[in-house]
Every structure is written in C-alpha cells, then in structure tokens.
Design a protein around this nucleic acid. Sequence first.
DNA 1: TAGCTTTTTGAAGGGGAATTCAAATACTCA
DNA 2: TGAGTATTTGAATTCCCCTTCAAAAAGCTA
Lengths: 212, 212
Amino acid sequence: MFSQLSEAKAKMAQRKSRSDRRVDLIEAARRAIIRHGIDRVQLSHVAEEAGLTSGAVLYHYPDLSELLVEAQHAGMERFYEQRLRQIAAFTDPVAKLVLTIRSGLPTGPLDPEVRLLNEMGGAAGRNRVYGVLLTSLYDRQVSMYQSILDTGAALGVFTLTTDPLTISRNLVALEDAYGYRITARHPLIGPDEAAELILSYARTVTGNDLIH
Amino acid sequence: MFSQLSEAKAKMAQRKSRSDRRVDLIEAARRAIIRHGIDRVQLSHVAEEAGLTSGAVLYHYPDLSELLVEAQHAGMERFYEQRLRQIAAFTDPVAKLVLTIRSGLPTGPLDPEVRLLNEMGGAAGRNRVYGVLLTSLYDRQVSMYQSILDTGAALGVFTLTTDPLTISRNLVALEDAYGYRITARHPLIGPDEAAELILSYARTVTGNDLIH
DNA sequence: TAGCTTTTTGAAGGGGAATTCAAATACTCA
DNA sequence: TGAGTATTTGAATTCCCCTTCAAAAAGCTA
C-alpha cells in the first residue's frame, strides 16, 4: 500500500486542481453528513473524509453550509438518476413498476443514499432549501411512476382503480416511509418486506399480479 | 399579569421540587427542540423555555442529551395518546378510520408534534435510541389501525382486499410520509390533500366509501 | 533550473456555548 | 424562629470549533 511513497510519512495530501478538489469535497461532505448528521457535521469531519486539513476545505468552500447543500443536492440527484437508469433498462411496464419500487428502497439500514435523504427530511421542516430540494425530488419521482402507470394502462396491462397521480403519490410516499423504517432498523421490516408491502398496494390499484 | 408579584422585578424563578422541575424541564426541552431542531438546540434554549438559568437545568440534568431523549419520548407519547383519545370518542369503524387518518397528519407545516417526530426520523439512522423509540411508535400505530380494521371486518362494514396487518402498515407509512411532505411545505399537498390521498387507499382496500 | 502561481498546512486568535462552583435564596422541619 | 437542606443564580473557566493567515509545498512555465 501507498506504493508511490518510499518515505515513511506523507507530508501533504496530493495536490489537485480546483474542480477536481471540489468534486472530492462534495463526496467527502456527503459521507461526513451521513456519519455525523446534517446539523452536527463540522468542518473537521469533512476535512478528515477528504484527507485534508480544515484550512484546505475552507480554501475551496469559504462557506461550509454551501458545501453541505451541494453535497445533499448531489446525493439526491445521484439517487434519482440511478433510478431512471434502472427503469430505462426495461420496456415492460410490469417489470418497470416492480423494479422502480425496489430501487426506491434502501438496500439495508446503512444505505448511504437513503440515509442522506432522511437526514434532509428531518431538516426540511426548518430549512427551506432542503424543503425545496426534497419537494422537487418527490415530484419527479411521482412523474416517474405516473409515466409507468400511464403506459401500462394504455397497453391494457394495468386496470387502474384510481387516477394515476393519486397512485403515484402514494407509491412514492410508501417508499419514503419504509426508507425511514428500514434505516431506523425496524426488526420486522427490511427491504424485502417493505417491497412486498408496497407491491401489495400496487397490485390492488393496477389489477395486475405484478409477477415478473 | 404577574398578578402574584407586587415587586417590579422577580429575583428568582419559583422554586420547585425535584420531580416537578424535571417534568417542567422535559416540556421546556420539547418546545426548545421544536423551535431550534434536535441537533441545534442548546442548554440556554431549554433554560429560557423553562424560565431558568443554564445552571439550574444542569442541576437537574447534568447530561443535556439525556433530557433531550426524554423530551422526544414525552412528545411521542403525547402524540400517540392524543390519537387514542380521538378514536375512543367513536364506535363506528368508518368514523374511527377516517378520524384516525386525519389525526395522524400535521395540521400544517408548523405542527409541533409532527415536526418533533420528523426531527427524530432524521436522527434515527444514526442514533439507536431514536430508532427504537420511533419503531415502537410505528408498531403501536399499526396495532391501532389493525384493531379498527378487524372490528370493521367483523361487522361486515369493511371487505378487506388484503390482510389487516399489511393495510395497517401501509396506512401508517402513508401518514408518516405525508407528514414529511407537509412539513417540507409541498405547495400542492397540504393536510386536506394528504388525507384524501390516504383515504383513496383506504377506500380501495376496505371496499367502503368511507363517507362519514 | 528559476521564478511564479496555486494549493495546502499548521498555528494563532476569536467567539460561543458547556461546565463548574461559590454564594445567594427559598423552603422544611424541629 | 433558626438551623439545615435543596434549589437557583451568575460569573469564571474551560472546551470546542470556526476563521484567519503567513509560510511551506507542489506544480507550472519559460
């Protein structure tokens, strides 16, 4: 390890370009937020995650809260784009729906993406910026489901009991809520159980067994 | 005002017994948490809410975080008991169900009870104590719905499409999620809209119009 | 290689909040 | 009423973290 160093002690973190370092810092901040909480994370935590000193972090982001918002935003977008990518791999509405439900849930209590979103959720009541970010994520996820449902209905695969908007809003809401349950380590509700609970709702309102 | 005081300035906060003061402090901490956020609240905020100085607070709770946990717990129990009381006022399962759904939602973005629970939700991923508290609340709320559904099914008022446990878990999950949306100030989803969304689910799975 | 620029370090300082504690105050009970 | 005890105050101290900044290090260019 540390193959490039022949000396026993590294004197300074590797020097990087402004833009590279900013990307690194956003990642480091994301990890620090998950570890310490959005309201407890401090400069030194971010520096540690990035392998730098506090001064270096400040050199790139004179305002820590700005970095934190960027980190939250970046984590959120990553989560959303990941879901979009997963859907794109399929054409069958049933497969899309089932897969989308799965992809909205954490893989386990430690799932970094969902942990980050949950951190934001707690702060959104106080901090308008986080409220706006989460609202926009919610709305986009609703649209995502809506287009799946619309397609399925048009193809005659789904027979919807209610309007697609209502169903989609509820589907995203269920994902969110079970995300919280799972990260809070509910002893009976893990990713599989949560998926099954949401699928139960989806089956009822689509009139489809959702066997894929 | 201050009818008991003839002097212009009160020299010291009213002296209270250990147990009385602890109860006061838990309430004060609850208010302080709502005002400042669970991770930003500080000793002086609690002291101010209680009408005491920081030293006095510390005299009763040498560890602030212990007081905060107790405050969260108390707030949670208050929320739950409030709901139980509301249900108890009715016998008709339809009325119970509709009312229970309403009582699980915040009255608006500033609703203190729900704000407090949301604060906890964000921290539950990091802090096991909050995770346990929230899990226990969730389970009790699920039981609450389950007993309503069971009764309604037994009376033939509800025709359940799935097992009551699944339905109940989803109902509580929906409440939770819309609680977050509302406190985050979603421009289209307020208490009324959220109630309607959840009712849409409830109607589908109970086979009842839920007109009360 | 020398000089210039950019990035990083580390130490010093400044501020705000927790903590400590002696003194003051209020209550209890004999 | 007076002694003793419990509670509260307020100021001094300590702790922790952000902020600043001069100097060092690394990279770049000619």
